[in-house]
Write a protein that binds this DNA or RNA. Structure first.
Lengths: 156, 156
DNA sequence: ATAATCTTTAGAGTTAACTTTAAGTCAAGA
DNA sequence: TCTTGACTTAAAGTTAACTCTAAAGATTAT
């Protein structure tokens, strides 16, 4: 299948502006032009865009993605670099997910705290609630009870 | 405990510039000043910074974080808004993690592909490898075999 | 006491990734 | 044919979140 830039934009969820910007940045070296100068996207190009979204979505800057594409164009002599790049990206991603899960624990605690606070009509009362205090210590550790900013505001 | 801006920076992993910038943006309304005008950070302020890092790290812009702080200052009348904010942030975060795990599957596939390619000295040969083709179909679905950009480059 | 280090301010500069604008050219339907 | 909407380029503008600079005042170690 062949797609105009507008069709490619709809298929990928990007804008036509963004697609032209990516091309200018060297991220779409395989996109062809029609006789009258219009861009023609192939399914292969859509596939590249999906890989670009994957790498961008896992925190790689466009420059890094361009490096991968340049290695691809260079051919099999750059296979080790590309493998290493994906291995590094996997490690990054594992760390990202682990960090997000820590953040999730914090947010879950806040939801329980604020649910209780809404129930009681007071953040102070919710904080004093024994059940929540216990749970908080489980999450942050007994020593770092004071790392909850809501709790600490009482100490000022 | 009390901390200078430099000590607070070391404790949080931020720079002193960033801490001043956050204060200017209204994110640190509880930080006090010494008689001679130096900032004095309390453990409570460090706790706020940890919460800021959590919200920032889960994709909330500084403006959204400031809104939360403004609600906190406003007091118990804004408890429902704050609860709703954390609930939305949790939902966001669940979606983020789910997306990252999709990306992880793609990257894992690429690692297997490139490991085979390095072994065989050729991306083309690795692609033809039956085991990998089968696995690829499992990940992307049989219809979307052509969504691998490495595979699709052969069709140009 | 004095040198080295830290902190202060206001404001300018940077970076990545778009996003918009302007001034046109191209293609498809009534 | 006319009009409507999609497309073209080059270049300027935007946004978020820093990041740096300069010049001066404050703190700490010897």
């Amino acid at each position: 299948m062949r797609y105009s830039i507008g069709q490619a934009a709809r298929k990928t969820g990007l804008t036509t502006h963004t697609l032209r910007y990516y091309e200018k940045e060297g991220l779409l070296p395989f996109v062809k032009k029609s006789g009258s100068g219009l861009r023609v996207f192939s399914d292969g190009d859509i596939g590249w865009l999906e890989m670009i979204e994957c790498l961008k979505g896992t925190g790689m800057p466009l420059k890094g993605i361009k490096q991968y594409i340049d290695w691809f164009i260079e051919g099999d002599s750059t296979l080790p670099q590309r493998l290493e790049m994906f291995q590094k990206q996997k490690k990054n991603l594992e760390e990202q997910i682990a960090l997000l899960q820590k953040h999730m624990a914090k947010i879950d605690y806040k939801i329980r705290l604020y649910a209780k606070a809404v129930e009681l009509g007071s953040l102070e009362k919710a904080r004093i609630d024994k059940g929540l205090q216990k749970e908080q210590q489980k999450i942050y550790g007994a020593d770092s009870f004071s790392t909850s900013e809501d709790a600490k505001q009482t100490t000022r």
